[in-house]
């Protein structure tokens, strides 16, 4: 027998309710939630899909830590430990464990899409990339959009700066586009001004909670911050651009 506390309610009111269920060897937390739903609370709202850590649907906070419930094994917790499960704190609760993450979809639409240079096509009309160029941006493509990073980021979670910060998930999306060797769009001004790289103080919580182990901060956000420094804060580079001229520099892209 294991003890659980689950949030029941909506965005304006709710409470933690106690449950007691049998747990078998090999179960994950999502199994336990589904058993509670099947046996005790048929109207419990929980979002899930693949149960394999690839769809990013079952994000919740288990004992206060943002996690995928399908990838959290029951044996991570002591037998006598009560497991409390809450919805993501950063987003409005729709019902019980389900939150409204649609704000993220709106952010995604703000990002200028991939725009390759047609002159880079080979004779067969295909774009070609070498493996070393693919490797760096491939890491960011592992993102399953579970929004655990968005949820744990204190800029959104505690300071509610949604109007100034796009969040870590979309900064790595921007990194994958900015570092793409075939892309031609300049997003650096947007990254600084609209998407708010300066709001991130790199406390790395996004990296800590990522179920895909993407190094969001080291490989995505910090490189973007450095590119912003290149453009806006490096006095020598600023003088160099003034001396040489932006037009000439654009002829020799890095």
């Amino acid at each position: 027998m294991r003890y659980f506390k689950l949030f029941r309610g909506n965005n304006s009111e709710g409470e933690m309710k106690d449950y007691r269920i049998e747990v078998e060897k090999g179960m994950v937390v999502l199994d336990a939630i589904l058993r509670i739903q099947a046996e005790q609370e048929n109207d419990l709202a929980v979002r899930w899909n693949c149960k394999a850590g690839k769809c990013g649907s079952c994000s919740v906070e288990i004992n206060g830590k943002p996690k995928l419930s399908c990838m959290t094994r029951m044996n991570e917790y002591d037998n006598d430990e009560t497991i409390s499960i809450r919805p993501l704190k950063t987003f409005p609760v729709m019902r019980d464990l389900v939150t409204d993450v649609s704000w993220n979809f709106i952010q995604n639409k703000k990002i200028a899409p991939f725009k390759p240079d047609p002159s880079q096509k080979d004779k067969n009309g295909n774009y070609r990339m070498t493996q070393e160029d693919v490797d760096r941006i491939q890491e960011f493509r592992k993102c399953i959009e579970c929004y655990l990073c968005q949820n744990v980021c204190h800029v959104l979670r505690d300071h509610d700066k949604r109007n100034k910060f796009i969040g870590p998930r979309f900064l790595i999306c921007l990194a994958s586009l900015e570092m793409h060797p075939l892309d031609t769009t300049d997003r650096i001004p947007d990254i600084k001004n609209d998407f708010g790289t300066g709001m991130c103080n790199i406390t790395k919580c996004c990296t800590d909670v990522c179920p895909e182990h993407i190094q969001l901060t080291d490989n995505g956000i910090i490189p973007l911050k450095e590119r912003v420094v290149d453009r806006y804060y490096d006095p020598l580079k600023w003088i160099w651009r003034k001396l040489v001229g932006e037009k000439i520099l654009r002829l020799f892209p890095s």
């Binding site: 070498t130 160029d133 900015e178 892309d183 490189p223 450095e226 890095s254």
Partner: peptide, 12 residues
């Protein structure tokens, strides 16, 4: 890391 190679988009 950025100055050594991180600033470039095409390694090849």
């Amino acid at each position: 890391r950025h100055l050594v190679g991180g600033s470039i988009n095409c390694f090849s």
